[in-house]
Amino acid sequence: MNVLIVEDEALAVQKLTKLLRETAPTLNVVGVTDGIETTVEWLTSHPSPDLIMMDIELSDGQSFEIFNLVEVDCPVIFTTSYDEHALRAFKGNSLDYLLKPIRRDELDQAVQKYLRIAARRVTSADIGHLVQDLRKQGSGHEVRTQFLVREGQRLIPVETAQIVCFYAEDGQTYLLTRNRIGYTVEYTLEQLEEMLDVTQFFRVNEQFIVAQSAITATHSSLNGKLKLELKPGPGREVLVSPDRVERFRIWKGN
Rank of each mutant, 00 (worst) to 15 (best):
R135G: 11
G253S: 05
T38Q: 08
A24G: 05
N205L: 01
R103M: 11
L87N: 10
R249H: 04
L43S: 03
I209W: 05
I56Y: 08
N179W: 14
H141I: 13
C165Q: 01
G171E: 01
F248W: 06
I209C: 05
S220C: 11
L115I: 12
V238P: 03
G182T: 14
V72G: 04
S63P: 02
L4E: 01
G224S: 07
L27Y: 06
E57D: 12
A24I: 07
V185M: 04
E65R: 15
R116L: 11
N179I: 09
V240G: 13
E65I: 14
L189Q: 05
A12L: 02
D126W: 08
S48A: 14
K227P: 14
R180F: 07
I156Y: 02
A211C: 13
I209F: 03
G35F: 03
V40S: 00
I56W: 07
E246V: 09
E159I: 10
A10H: 11
A10Q: 07
V6I: 14
E159T: 14
Q207W: 04
F90D: 12
S213I: 01
P234A: 11
V111A: 04
S213Q: 10
F67N: 06
G253D: 08
L51D: 07
D8K: 02
G35A: 13
L51Y: 05
